[in-house]
């Protein structure tokens, strides 16, 4: 099993000029990114929506790779989104799923059927032409260049260690360095769009 921070460290050198939507990996990505203006770390506007948001970005910016670090708790709320993404076939869309098997921010309660679900098979069944699953960092590291080197949409399920938070929300370390408004403003400016 790998740690989210280590997985993102492996990914970082391959980022190039891709748009990165770090989802619940945002707390680690903020220390790794070399191009924050192409990152869209929104935290959690409404659970279950990261895949939809990333799809929208990918459709609006077909000339750029869009990298999403989704989570299993989010996608379980929106499994139908996989079908929409598969139908749209965005060639620039790279869908990574951080699967720690639980709701880590609420104390670590397991997601439904956590030990017996195969997200890569669900994605493939939804119509993703390529889907992978990795639970070891070395395997992931070996296959990543090929995954990113071919067109999307591609789905990559990553089994990671749970890092459970039990502190009251108000006492947790705040990893965001920018407000959501600022994130959107910076991103649009980087893309040459109006405010």
């Amino acid at each position: 099993m790998m740690h989210t921070a280590d997985m993102l460290k492996v990914f970082a050198p391959y980022r190039e000029d891709a748009i990165v939507i770090p989802g619940r990996g945002g707390r680690y990505w903020t220390d790794l990114t070399t191009c924050p203006s192409l990152d869209v770390p929104l935290g959690d506007p409404a659970m279950g929506g990261h895949a939809g948001f990333a799809l929208g970005v990918a459709l609006a910016q077909p000339g750029r790779k869009v990298i999403l670090f989704d989570s299993e708790g989010d996608i379980l709320m929106s499994l139908g989104m996989l079908v929409t993404i598969a139908e749209q076939q965005p060639a620039n869309f790279y869908h990574f799923l951080i699967d720690n098997g639980c709701y880590a921010t609420t104390g670590g309660q397991p997601v439904p059927n956590a030990d017996n679900i195969a997200y890569d098979m669900i994605a493939r069944g939804a119509g993703y032409p390529r889907a992978f699953a990795f639970d070891e960092l070395e395997q992931f590291s070996t296959h990543l260049p090929d995954i990113l080197g071919k067109p999307g949409p591609v789905f990559v399920a990553l089994k990671v260690a749970a890092e459970i938070e039990n502190a009251p929300i108000g006492r947790r370390r705040r990893w965001q360095t920018r407000t959501r408004d600022q994130v959107v403003k910076d991103f649009r400016a980087e893309l040459g769009l109006g405010s």
């Binding site: 929506g49 948001f53 459709l59 991103f187």
Partner: peptide, 13 residues
């Protein structure tokens, strides 16, 4: 799902 997709579309132009 339409809300998050529309948000991504709009933010990205």
């Amino acid at each position: 799902h339409a809300c998050s997709i529309a948000a991504g579309l709009s933010v990205a132009g």
